[in-house]
């Protein structure tokens, strides 16, 4: 697994993290291309199902990026998202997937630098963890089938 390039899905709130990603773009702050953004109107829109589906489909890491505490456009959607992420993390452990592969981050629309840094940190962390057990298992199955 020397050339392991993780695939990381970032669910980003339109009002903060997605705008911060745009800001990172305008400031040309580079971050690993492993991170793919899916825009949501609020971090609370991200279903537990979306998180586990992402892993099932092959994500090595997933994170939800919502607004800073108290800044949610919809009162407390970011807190809901945070507790959902915490809940799914427990569930992942039960499934044998390291819970660090899933994370919740908070940032404001103006934090382009933090967006890039978060993307870097997350990619680094997943790189250290290696491919997701699901992907490892899938690869093995494929190997056996061949």
């Amino acid at each position: 697994m020397e050339n392991f390039e993780p695939v990381i899905v970032a669910f980003c709130c339109h009002y903060c993290a997605y705008t911060a990603a745009d800001m990172a773009g305008t400031q040309r702050l580079t971050y690993p291309s492993n991170v793919k953004i899916i825009r949501v109107p609020c971090s609370c829109k991200v279903d537990a199902l979306h998180l586990v589906k992402a892993f099932e489909k092959g994500a090595d890491g997933v994170y939800v990026a919502g607004c800073l505490k108290g800044d949610c456009h919809f009162n407390n959607g970011n807190d809901r998202a945070a507790s959902r992420v915490a809940y799914v993390k427990k569930y992942l452990e039960e499934l044998g997937i390291e819970s660090e592969r899933l994370a919740m981050f908070r940032m404001s629309a103006g934090m382009g630098f933090q967006f890039a840094q978060t993307a870097k940190d997350m990619t680094e962390k997943i790189r250290e963890l290696g491919p997701s057990p699901i992907n490892v298992a899938k690869a093995q199955l494929k190997g056996e089938a061949a």
């Binding site: 109107p41 609370c44 829109k45 991200v46 537990a48 979306h50 919809f74 959607g77 809901r80």
Partner: peptide
């Protein structure tokens, strides 16, 4: 409806 999706995901 404000369209946040809180109800949808729950």
């Amino acid at each position: 409806c404000h369209g946040c999706g809180a109800c949808v995901s729950e």
